[in-house]
Amino acid sequence: MNKIPRRVVTGIQDGKSVIVEDQQIENAIEHFPGLIISDIWSTQKTPASLDSEIKILNTAFPQTPKNGTYFRYVVIPPDKNLGIDWKENEPHPMMHQTLTLDYIIILSGELYLIMEEGETLLKPGDIVIQRGTNHAWSNRSDEPCIQLAVLIDAEVKE
């Protein structure tokens, strides 16, 4: 399994800032071959509490709490390693929607963001602002793509 970066958590002890935790991420699961997700942190409300961490269940599709956030590290393998057989002019088999506002940063590799109409190639340093729309990720390269994502619960317009 890929080495997930370490997580450093800060806090306050005796009125001074301190490092509370400094260790490798332990919450990493390979949901599909090569698709590694680590749900790093979650908040349960806004404004967020700075006093506690709530352990979260690592899921393939995020379960962002109402009025909360999710912070996740995702390794997306090449499509061919996932066994995805996608034909142009058909919906991508991994098309999905989260009812969240997502801030996504591509750290390494490359990845196509596929929408119901159109797609774009993302490379390291690219940032995606995903606003609750249907989308899929397609890695057509030979290397994994690593992304960081912050998902924020959003209002759904009826």
Rank of each mutant, 00 (worst) to 15 (best):
L99E: 15
R140K: 14
K16V: 13
V156T: 13
Q147L: 15
Y70K: 05
Y73D: 02
Y70R: 04
I29H: 10
L122I: 04
I56T: 02
I152K: 04
E158Y: 10
S17T: 13
C145M: 09
V150T: 09
Y70Q: 09
P77S: 10
W137T: 00
E26M: 11
P5C: 09
G109P: 01
E117W: 07
M115D: 05
V156P: 00
S38G: 03
L121Y: 07
I146P: 00
S108N: 15
K157W: 12
I146F: 03
G118S: 07
H92P: 05
K123P: 00
M1H: 10
G15M: 08
Y70I: 12
I36N: 04
L82R: 09
D39T: 05
N58L: 03
H96T: 07
K80P: 00
E119A: 15
P62K: 03
S38A: 14
S52A: 08
R140L: 14
P65K: 03
T120L: 11
P65S: 09
C145A: 15
K157T: 10
N89C: 08
D142T: 13
G15A: 14
K123I: 07
K157V: 15
G109H: 00
D126K: 04
T43I: 06
G132N: 08
T64N: 02
P91N: 08
N89D: 15
I84M: 01
E117F: 12
I105L: 15
L50C: 07
W41I: 02
W41M: 11
T10E: 14
L148G: 07
G118Q: 09
P77L: 04
H31P: 09
I4G: 00
D126E: 08
I104A: 07
